[in-house]
């Protein structure tokens, strides 16, 4: 499934770089698209292997940022 997360603390290219690294660290994450202007990250992941909460934890782990899922 695809889920957009709002990450207000995104502020530079390095943040994007860190978040894009999620797809290398977690096999359940298939694709990560970041948006510096909207301060959002769209994550395509296998919901059978990873829950939305686990994604939020993974974002916190890699960047220290708090993410909230946008309502679809």
């Amino acid at each position: 499934m695809k889920q957009i997360f709002s990450v207000p603390e995104i502020h530079c290219s390095s943040c994007l770089m860190l978040l894009e690294g999620l797809e290398e660290d977690h096999s359940a994450i298939k694709n990560v698209r970041t948006d510096l202007i909207k301060k959002e990250v769209e994550i395509e992941f296998d919901e059978l292997k990873m829950s939305t909460n686990e994604i939020i934890e993974a974002i916190d782990e890699i960047s220290g940022y708090k993410a909230t899922p946008n309502a679809n």
Binding site: C12, S13, L16, M17, L18, E20, G21, E24, L36, I37, K39
Partner: peptide, 17 residues
């Protein structure tokens, strides 16, 4: 937020790897 230089994704991927 448009006032910032953003490197293309392939550059970010290269540096990260």
């Amino acid at each position: 937020r448009y006032f910032q230089i953003q490197p293309p994704r392939f550059v970010r991927t290269f540096i990260r790897r």
